[in-house]
Write a protein that binds this DNA or RNA. Structure first.
Lengths: 229, 229
DNA sequence: CGAGCGATTGAAAAGACTCAACCACCGTGG
DNA sequence: CCACGGTGGTTGAGTCTTTTCAATCGCTCG
């Protein structure tokens, strides 16, 4: 599944980079990036950073999936975002001069590059296009989160699950969705038991196909319908 | 309550500006701003912009309160943020090159200045400090919203209301909180009736004092305790 | 003075959560 | 090779929170 040549990944040929925010760099910038990033293979469930810790750099996902989450009072995780290859994780805290207010952890074995804070900020200072890309990205996430909040406040768990499955489908495609029940519940914002019961319903209604951890959407149209606007 | 001299507000003497993101401008920049902004008195419940409309500029609140909200499927509002004097509203959509995904409306009579998109973007391009301030602000809001989502997913309505009252207290201080029951319910993310019942509880527990629309927190410590982390 | 809106209350229903038990699978160590 | 232990998944039952619906109240505005 994972390209074992991860140690030889170079920024210049990295497809994840070219599809990402860093896609618009010029040759010089790429070689500079190349010299300043380190690349590592992360095992499943390995932490990238913890809530409350001090940010030292950003993470570029070359291959794999990362959950970004926050813990509530009782320690229960709320997954805010699931990042996939091409995404950069942890750059928000870079600007806020504060500690991370969320944590990030791999959901599967992942190949992830690391760029130190100063190098990243330098790149942004000297590259207006990149900067604009970042601002655009921040704004988009802000918009996403406004929708997330509204969904959480107003939709039923059934609706939210339908919505989540559509999102997850896009994140995992062309692979099947592959998340523990608990993670999925923490993404939807419900109890694991409730999630399991609803998955069963959806399965019986022919909307999804489930093979233990792995599931695929078989009737996206209907799911979108259930999810609502 | 509202300074009727609003027509004579100038950026150079605007206290709301000096405490805001635009506080660090130099004299030239301020006079430039002065020439490019227009200042208007908004009545209560007047719209600044609608969800789905195209952003043409940003709004600086000189005096007053503005709710930023999104409508769910059934048209019910979810209030995402309540902005007060000194805050700039609507700048996120400026970078995303998309339509507004939220709407904004005054909660009371307000004095609000308007800066056209191009002027605002120019200022940002030529002023690194302002730019950094904006990025910092975007990041902070992103952090806030992660917490908001988590609260919404994991806290009971009672806990969320306690939390909201603490926030509102800070926003309205030194005035009493002044919101319709419906707006408050839409901020907390609950039904109006539920909100009313819980307010009654809090009142009976001696945590707040209520005079129809206006209410004050009398035991913040206990409320914070109820709200949880 | 009447219309109408916001606030309030009560009662019933629904949605979701908790708790407890049970199952299924998998890797480990004897 | 098989028993064991552990983790993650599943199910059922009961409870509680929250919503919904309907009705009432109180006040303000024309």
């Amino acid at each position: 599944m994972l390209d074992k040549s991860h140690k030889h990944v170079t920024c210049s040929t990295c497809l994840s980079r070219s599809n990402s925010l860093l896609g618009g760099l010029c040759t010089d910038e790429v070689s500079n990036l190349e010299n300043h990033r380190s690349c590592n293979l992360f095992k499943k469930n390995q932490s990238l950073f913890l809530e409350g810790s001090f940010p030292r750099g950003v993470f570029c996902i070359n291959q794999g999936k990362v959950k970004v989450f926050k813990r509530g009072d009782e320690g229960k995780e709320q997954i805010i975002h699931i990042a996939k290859e091409g995404e950069i994780v942890g750059f928000r805290a870079m600007f806020s001069e504060e500690v991370y207010n969320v944590a990030a952890e791999t959901l599967e074995e992942s190949n992830i590059c690391y760029i130190a804070k100063d190098d990243f900020l330098n790149m942004i200072d000297t590259n207006a296009a990149l900067r604009n890309g970042i601002m655009k990205e921040l704004s988009k996430e802000l918009a996403d989160r406004a929708s997330f909040i509204t969904n959480m406040a107003q939709k039923s768990v059934r609706e939210r699950l339908a919505f989540a499955l559509i999102l997850l489908e896009k994140i995992y495609e062309p692979e099947p969705i592959n998340l523990s029940r608990e993670d999925m519940a923490n993404f939807v914002g419900t109890a694991t038991e409730t999630l399991i019961r609803l998955l069963k319903d959806f399965k019986e209604e022919g909307l999804i196909e489930v093979h233990t951890r792995k599931m695929t959407v078989t009737n996206a149209k209907k799911l979108i319908d259930i999810a609502g606007k």
